[in-house]
Design a protein around this nucleic acid. Structure first.
Lengths: 119, 119
DNA sequence: TAAGTGTACCATCATAAATAGTACAGTTAG
DNA sequence: CTAACTGTACTATTTATGATGGTACACTTA
């Protein structure tokens, strides 16, 4: 489910956070579903439990999961998160769009690219 | 011309590379124009010359500048760079667009955002 | 020749990421 | 109750990278 890219310059815990955020936002992991345990996931990925712990702490800080001591980590069902992520994405898209328009692309071309996008 | 953001988590040399790439691609720095010397820019930014050197080496590796020993670094006038950058940007835009469509936005909404963009 | 270029080193420091290991508290299935 | 799970909190250590400080050398130009 989670694959670490060792060519990626970002730290491992950050990659894990990103992957889980995507899985949760896209509904692959549903509300109140249990996350893999810290030790299990660490074993599976052959990395240190502390690294998973750090990733989970960050996911909790951002509201994507919640913790029940002794039972495990669970997916949070907060609808606001989707809205927030939408805003983040659109902001990034508009920044990139601005740049690409400044170096010679036209709005028409750009919009055509998006229209052709398969989802 | 170049400002370092110490809140930015990215390394300084990387920020410098990015800034110069943007300046070159947007034509602010024109072909065969001389870059600030390693020592001068280092003084101006109050950082170590080796850090500038690293940034320039990277810019040269990517084809944005060329070096004449004993004279200085100069902006390369390679038209392919703009094309390459366009492709990079569009690829990123399409990735983000895909995500934002998957979490509930419609193409119409997204396109409207881009239409409203001021450039 | 002097002062400016780039380049190549090397040693050092600072920081963050990651690992390793231990310990403790809560939950649950048997 | 016990054993085997959960998460959490530490501390110490290693590793990698970024950044600095300093020196030296070759080339170019006024």
């Amino acid at each position: 489910m989670i694959i670490i890219d060792y060519k990626d310059t970002r730290p491992i815990y950050e990659q894990i956070v990103e992957k889980f955020k995507t899985l949760i936002l896209r509904g692959v992991l549903q509300a109140d579903e249990q996350m893999p345990s810290v030790r299990n996931l660490a074993m599976e990925l052959s990395i240190n439990p502390n690294t998973i712990q750090k990733a989970y702490a960050e996911l909790e800080r951002q509201g994507f999961i919640y913790t029940v001591k002794g039972r495990g980590n669970f997916v949070s069902g907060d609808g606001k998160l989707v809205e927030e992520r939408k805003c983040e994405c659109i902001q990034k898209i508009l920044e990139l769009a601005k740049e690409v328009l400044e170096i010679g692309m036209t709005k028409i071309e750009l919009i055509r690219e998006i229209e052709q996008l398969q989802v």
